[in-house]
């Protein structure tokens, strides 16, 4: 078979995207998480990575007219336990928002699989392929979440050149396979990553990946884990930050009792790099009902 170029006018002029279920967050990402590519979401623990991924797994089931992919999702978790109670809570809120669309529990369209090691992830990728081509549900799978990729790689490998080489070769293998699946089935692939502290303030010259100026979380400068090789494996990179901010309103009280300074957690979603997005950010809050942007 001779390769033929794709006619760019024969496919939609904007890449299909999966809504996050919030118009403000969607605006920040120009519609949501893009299909046919890998989006990385990195943050320190407790910033809402898993929250956002769970919400995404639900909103992917929305019809295309509401910004969803009308598809089910495959949720691969590597950190234990799987937050099934939170998922139920979210799905309950989600059903009451869209009572007309969901006759059955949306949790039925989220397939959860646990993975313990990098090799195991590589092993199940072919199984995923056969699962994707013949799904068991009425909705085709349109979203793969891996939460988190970092947990698989941060413990198992030693800090020797041979091991690091094996590690980065695994990165490219996994990413290549995921991109192939994303392309073939029109999937949105989301992977979460942890952070490491940035030791050298400016990095070695030219060492900086993306514009790191914005990457402050909990008052520290951070950068995504897994290094340069992994950074080459993702198409887009998003960052969730959390910073404590002192509220100025209770001025009178501060004099009486210095310990009663009120602080508030401010969370933001940042676009670090993406082929279709400018750098930007959006503030968000996490409530009982899910993750929402605020202006």
């Amino acid at each position: 078979m001779t390769p033929a170029p794709e006619n760019l006018l024969h496919r939609p002029l904007t890449t299909p995207k999966c809504t996050l279920g919030c118009p403000l967050l969607d605006r920040c990402l120009a519609g949501g998480f893009p299909c046919n590519s890998i989006t990385e979401l990195f943050a320190e623990s407790g910033c809402g990575k898993t929250q956002l991924c769970l919400q995404l797994a639900l909103s992917a089931q929305l019809p295309v007219s509401l910004g969803g992919l009308s598809g089910s999702s495959l949720y691969i978790h590597t950190e234990f336990p799987f937050p099934s109670r939170r998922l139920h809570q979210l799905s309950h809120a989600f059903r009451s928002t869209y009572p007309a669309i969901f006759k059955t529990d949306p949790c039925d369209s989220i397939f959860v699989h646990a993975v313990h090691s990098a090799d195991q992830l590589l092993d199940i990728l072919p199984k995923m392929e056969s699962f994707l081509s013949d799904p068991k549900t009425h909705l085709p799978v349109k979203l793969i979440v891996i939460d988190s990729i970092a947990a698989l790689f941060r413990s198992e490998f030693e800090n020797s050149p041979v091991e690091l080489k094996r590690r980065s070769s695994l990165f490219f293998k996994i990413s290549g396979k995921l991109k192939l699946l994303a392309k073939r089935f029109g999937l949105a692939v989301v992977v979460t990553n942890q952070v490491v502290d940035l030791i050298v303030p400016e990095g070695i010259n030219g060492m900086r990946i993306g514009n790191l100026a914005c990457l402050y979380s909990s008052g520290r400068r951070v950068c995504p884990a897994l290094g340069l090789a992994w950074a080459n494996c993702v198409n887009s990179r998003l960052f969730l930050s959390r910073n404590e901010e002192v509220e100025k309103e209770e001025k009178g009280l501060v004099d009486v009792d210095a310990n009663r300074v009120c602080t508030r957690t401010r969370r933001r979603l940042h676009v670090v790099f993406a082929p279709h997005l400018p750098e930007g950010s959006c503030e968000l809050v996490i409530t009982r009902e899910g993750v929402f942007g605020v202006e």
Binding site: R11, P12, A30, P34, K183, N235
Partner: peptide, 16 residues
């Protein structure tokens, strides 16, 4: 132009 995309980073809306 011929554009050979190996990474999947080509976004048609950006090209437009």
């Amino acid at each position: 132009a011929i554009y050979i995309d190996t990474e999947g980073s080509f976004m048609v809306e950006r090209a437009l």
